[in-house]
Design a protein around this nucleic acid. Structure first.
Lengths: 158, 158
DNA sequence: CAGAAAATGATATATTATAACACTTCATCA
DNA sequence: TGATGAAGTGTTATAATATATCATTTTCTG
């Protein structure tokens, strides 16, 4: 069984750090500005293994001493999602960091309803099935949402 | 190409009627009460080829002369979704009638971003891919959301 | 019919998201 | 290099979506 969800002992700070580095690269490539606010929101999202809501981000920023209003957070989120740096989890109204912002992919999200952790996976077999189905009915895909709720291995067994 | 979206000339009233009949059967089988309010909400949803929001339903019921508050609508929606008679489209915060309430299935929703119409499809290949992926990572599925946005054939070609 | 359970009504409020306009920062190029 | 415009953020207000709570009504069951 592959380790979809992070296992004990993984170095989370290092993940966040490398995500930041990659985000900078993506922004650079797109000539987009990775401003302070955007970096803060991105970092907060990446520091969580759960999906984070806009108002949780708002609270976290406020706790850091900023006085921030909803539009500020939503703008940062819009920027980050448009660049593919974070994904919105529709069924949670919440946001989650994307592992692979540098490539097109149809991500699936596994969401544990017990511990709340989220994991992104890429599954060619499923992506192909979706594409094939769309072609079969003459549908031109613009965006796809795949969210799978259930119990992660840890929660199912403990 | 199969006719995912309803074609001209299909008899919509007949669809709604048969959906109602099937809903009654499902409620009967579950010993659940298909009350007036639930029937009205169900019918309003089925009368639309688009996904319908709770507040659109509220407005429609009000227009029919009822004085209805949000909880009433949300309760009917909760009842109907729990029985599988309607599905919630997470990415639209809206509801759509389910063709096959009588069998377990992992539905995909094709949502046209131009005309707003929605179509449900069942795709074994994709369902299997999702199940297989979940097994591969030790994940126990409780619910799956697959929503595909893009252009339906009509909108893409006209 | 009495009593319990289920459903709905009614009021209030929580949560999520955006519109509109003012102000600031940043890139750029004359 | 500093005027200018575009991009980003601040601020206020409000829209859109959803739920908690308690009162009342309806339905089921014995």
């Amino acid at each position: 069984m592959s380790d979809l969800f992070p296992k004990k002992g993984h170095d989370h700070d290092r993940c966040v750090h490398s995500a930041l580095a990659q985000a900078e690269k993506v922004c650079d490539a797109e000539n987009a500005r990775f401003t302070d606010m955007r970096r803060k929101v991105f970092t907060l999202i990446w520091q969580s293994h759960k999906a984070v809501t806009a108002y949780e981000l708002l609270d976290a920023l406020t706790a850091e001493g900023q006085r921030v209003q909803p539009p500020t957070v939503y703008r940062a989120l819009e920027f980050l999602t448009e660049l593919g740096l974070v994904h919105r989890i529709e069924s949670l109204n919440a946001y989650f960091g994307c592992d692979r912002p540098d490539c097109e992919h149809l991500g699936q999200y596994f969401i544990c309803t017990d511990c709340g952790r989220v994991a992104e996976a890429v599954n060619e077999e499923m992506s192909n099935a979706v594409r094939k189905a769309a072609i079969g009915v003459g549908f031109t895909i613009q965006a796809t949402t795949v969210e799978i709720k259930g119990l992660c291995h840890d929660c199912a067994t403990h």
